[in-house]
Design a protein around this nucleic acid. Structure first.
Length: 496
DNA sequence: TCTGGGGTCCTAGGACCC
DNA sequence: TCTGGGGTCCTAGGACCC
């Protein structure tokens, strides 16, 4: 808890949807919903226009379509969002070495550590200039919260939305938090909120009055103690620039439940391939393989197996996942499968010492497997090459994706079906464009590149004193390939 | 058309070890 | 030899976050 509001929290406004609106002039001012368009999709981000219909993050897409049948429905374009995110993170990096990205569209910045602000006035000035710079370089708006702690800075940015700045003067925390719902505190979700409500506590001041012992008794050591501190407005968590990844995982929800064991096994193997591809790309190996299964009734279980040494070998991960699948009853059907690796080690396949040590371990273990566990455990072996699965051969025009036509130029897919694809021809700087329809295999039509939202943006060009672009914090690129990132806690009621 | 995908942290019980 | 106590690892599940 510092005496000056020098912790900044930035949250881009309806990020995915706003990026799409900036990129597609015909969608500006209209309801836009980004998310999974399949039969089991959910909303990742709804534009503010769409929220007026009651659509919000994590809502099943079918429900969104009933509420806002005339909205534009688009599939997320993560590479595009990531490129915008990198521009934003560069601006943050110019303020301080201590930037902590939470997702593609959100980050904490320690202004004091950056030496750019040490009191209320300078912090506010930096925040306002940041917002202006973000708008100028990306064409998008972000909201800024300033306070003496992470918790309050995040609460402030939430209050500032959309397109605003809010500052919580240090010293006013308790009176500000007291009357608020317990749900305003980070870490209080639906379950904890209900738990507290049954115990007669609905506001933050209720928690403060209950005392630490009572909260620990109710919620457990760690949660209770931290919640009590938060309720008093106490939060000393530092802004941390680099955090090591702890796990890598991939999962798929299927359009219809899977029943066939052979198919289920094949899907687990595909997921193992994708997981290992990501694991290797991140320069990690890991010791624990996790299989996740969500059944027809949404009940979810995990099975895990820890190897004697870390691996990044496809064969090892695939076989472990296969063994784990053997122990799972899939009768009734499976709606989701996932494969993950945790217990990550920072070594890569170039680390020959680690590899040979690992092989020695495997041999040792194999030699004393009288109880069967040695034989059943994974042989820890490495492989030279991971085969990446090939992309689909047929052309699929996903709604929202960029295309280029030999005659009509740049546009985006508005919809496709029945052998046809409808394209709207417009780009970020243009007026709203016209729609044309083609055969899906029209040779003059090809996939296009995402165009920059601000035409004259030049990365690295001078942006005024104190705003020399710095390297993007690496965590920004590694994380955040996930939808739902722009969700705001209050408008983000997760399904039970 | 009822519920995504990627993560993090915590808890609790049992095994195992000293 | 009627009973320990603590630490660490592993597994499974749950809550939460974006």
């Amino acid at each position: 808890m510092r005496a000056a509001p020098t912790i900044l929290h930035l949250d881009m406004d309806a990020f995915f949807a706003a990026a799409e609106q900036a990129s597609k002039p015909s969608l500006r001012g209209k309801p836009v919903i980004v998310g999974g368009l399949g039969p089991r999709g959910v909303v990742a981000t709804a534009s503010y226009e769409a929220r007026r219909f009651g659509v919000h993050s994590a809502m099943p897409m079918g429900q969104a379509r009933r509420l806002a049948p005339n909205a534009a429905y688009l599939v997320p374009r993560f590479a595009f969002y990531r490129s915008i995110s990198e521009q934003v993170m560069r601006l943050l990096g110019s303020l301080s070495p201590l930037v902590e990205p939470l997702s593609l569209d959100e980050a904490f910045v320690d202004l004091e550590a950056g030496g750019v602000a040490d009191d209320t006035a300078s912090a506010r000035a930096v925040g306002e200039r940041l917002r202006a710079d973000i708008l100028a370089t990306t064409g998008l708006s972000g909201s800024v919260g300033l306070a003496g702690s992470k918790m309050l800075a995040k609460i402030a940015s939430e209050q500032a939305k959309p397109d605003g700045l809010a500052l919580i003067p240090p010293g006013t925390e308790r009176e500000l938090l007291g009357p608020e719902s317990v749900r305003i505190l980070p870490g209080v979700g639906p379950a904890t909120g209900e738990h507290l409500r049954r115990a007669g506590m609905t506001t933050v001041s209720d928690l403060a009055e209950a005392g630490e012992d009572e909260l620990v008794r109710l919620l457990g050591r760690a949660h209770g103690a931290s919640l009590y501190r938060m309720a008093l407005g106490h939060d000393d968590r530092p802004v941390v620039a680099e955090r090591d990844a702890k796990s890598v995982s991939v999962e798929d929800t299927f359009a219809v439940d899977l029943h066939d064991r052979v198919r289920i096994r094949a899907e687990v193997e595909r997921l193992a391939e994708r997981c290992v591809g990501r694991l290797r790309a991140s320069g990690h190996s890991g010791r624990t393989i996790v299989l996740k299964v969500r059944r027809f009734d949404f009940s979810t279980l995990t099975r895990s197996e820890t190897l004697r040494g870390p691996t990044d070998a496809l064969g090892v991960v695939r076989e472990a996942a296969g063994r784990l699948l053997d122990s799972v009853d899939t009768t009734g059907g499976v709606r989701l499968l996932g494969v993950g690796v945790s217990g990550l080690a920072d070594y890569t396949q170039e680390d020959l010492f680690a590899q040979s040590a690992q092989s020695a371990w495997a041999e040792l273990a194999g030699g004393r497997s009288e109880d069967g566990t040695g034989a059943g455990a994974a042989p820890v072996v490495t492989e030279a090459v991971v085969a990446e699965p090939a992309g689909p051969a047929e052309r699929y025009w996903a709604p929202g994706h960029d295309v280029r036509h030999a005659v009509h130029g740049a546009g985006w897919v508005q919809g496709s079906g029945l052998g046809r694809v409808t394209v709207r021809f417009e780009e970020p700087g243009s007026a709203p464009g016209r729609v044309r329809t083609f055969a899906v295999d029209d040779p003059e039509l090809e996939a296009g590149e995402a165009l920059p939202l601000v035409r004259d943006f030049v990365p690295g060009r001078d942006r005024g004193p104190g705003l020399v672009p710095a390297p993007v914090p690496s965590a920004a690129a590694g994380r955040g390939s996930a939808p739902g990132l722009t969700a705001e806690p209050d408008s983000h009621p997760h399904h039970p």
